[in-house]
């Protein structure tokens, strides 16, 4: 078990590309932290710096109470699960799981016991003598997990471990991984580009974009009060509606209505953010949307339409009957987020 401490950690490649801008944060003992962001945002680089597979250009990285900047991956007391599992194709499941222990000169009977225990935990006991090529995707994923577990590491690292699985298996493995992490209580850092994975698995989420940390927070913090338009549109499916508003004497003008809001006037242009499910259909509501498309999703429906000349998505329950055409609705003022149109940063109310 360990805490992880980033102090102004930066990654600059020899060609001058700054993959990770100086980042400082703290991961608590036993915490499950998810690094999420679009591809190329620096999340994998961040993980690989923790693993020691990528050199740290500047700053200090601590795992536990050790500075690990110059410590070999093998000596960092970490275990890693890779995107393509990185199983050794010529070794049996048993040897795959035990290889890390064997290299650390762990006695053979101890290895056998640990491998058996991990296999039992992961439902792999019947497959120990198979080669990776004889396993299904989900089973390979479990072997990769097993390889991490047997080592009893201080830190688990996951590099998009579920991205090669089909949707159904992904949901199942998501729950399994989370449950396993709870049970073992090992600090974990998990990289993904899938915001659903991030929301469902994380104790805390770190959202990255362009080498910069956009926001760190619990899933609900990130969802309810995104720190920037980037986070607002990246997290949540469908994403938060972002609408341009203009200032008026009595508040903010959205389409042909005035929202009676008193925001400090900094002179900046503003963007209003509202989650699709926070838009409440109301025949007497002040706003009206031209609904173009109704997307039937079973448990609920998504209405895609236009508010003035801006596109908007509304989430309505399945028993709410809708038709294409004009829909009137209301917006509870307390759920609205506002962002600076120029910087994209959240504006506090």
């Amino acid at each position: 078990m360990a805490v992880v401490h980033f102090d102004a950690v930066q990654k600059v490649y020899p060609n001058g590309f700054e993959a990770v801008k100086p980042a400082s944060f703290y991961i608590e003992d036993g915490e499950f932290v998810v690094l999420v962001g679009p591809s190329g945002c620096g999340k994998s680089t961040m993980l690989r710096m923790i693993a020691g597979l990528e050199e740290i250009s500047n700053g200090v990285l601590q795992i536990g109470d050790r500075v690990v900047n110059d410590i070999d991956p093998a000596d960092r007391d970490i275990a890693m699960v890779f995107q393509n599992y990185a199983l050794y194709p010529h070794m049996s499941v048993r040897n795959n799981i035990g290889y890390g222990l064997k290299n650390r000169a762990v006695p053979r009977d101890v290895i056998a016991a640990k491998v058996d225990e991990a296999a039992k935990m992961l439902n792999l006991s019947d497959y120990l003598d198979r080669k990776p090529s004889q396993l299904s995707g989900g089973q390979r994923q479990r072997v990769a997990m097993g390889r991490a577990i047997v080592r009893d590491p201080a830190l688990f690292l996951f590099d998009e471990p579920l991205s090669n699985l089909d949707a159904k298996l992904r949901n199942q493995m998501r729950i399994e991984i989370k449950a396993l992490q709870r049970r073992l209580g090992v600090t974990s850092v998990y990289v993904t580009h899938d915001q659903v994975e991030a929301m469902t698995m994380a104790d805390r989420i770190i959202v990255m974009n362009g080498g910069v940390i956009e926001q760190i927070g619990t899933p609900s913090e990130i969802y309810q009060s995104p720190a920037s338009t980037f986070v607002a549109s990246f997290m949540g499916a469908p994403p938060m509606n972002l609408l341009e508003v203009t200032r008026a004497d009595t508040g903010l003008r959205l389409a042909d209505q005035i929202l009676p809001l008193d925001l400090p006037d900094t002179g900046a242009e503003l963007i209003l953010g509202i989650r699709p499910e926070d838009i409440i259909p109301d025949p007497n509501g002040p706003f009206s949307i031209m609904v173009d498309i109704v997307e039937e999703l079973g448990a609920h429906r998504l209405l895609h339409g236009r508010l003035g000349d801006q596109s908007v998505t509304v989430h309505v329950p399945k028993d709410y009957t809708v038709a294409e055409g004009v829909l009137r609705f209301a917006m509870p003022i307390e759920v609205l987020s506002f962002f600076d149109a120029a910087s994209g940063q959240r504006v506090s109310r």
Binding site: A51, G52, L53, D72, P73, G100, N103
Partner: peptide
């Protein structure tokens, strides 16, 4: 040969 194999091996202490 996938790079991840080297990385996994390094973490496995090889």
């Amino acid at each position: 040969v996938p790079e991840e194999l080297v990385e996994a091996a390094r973490i496995d202490g090889a």
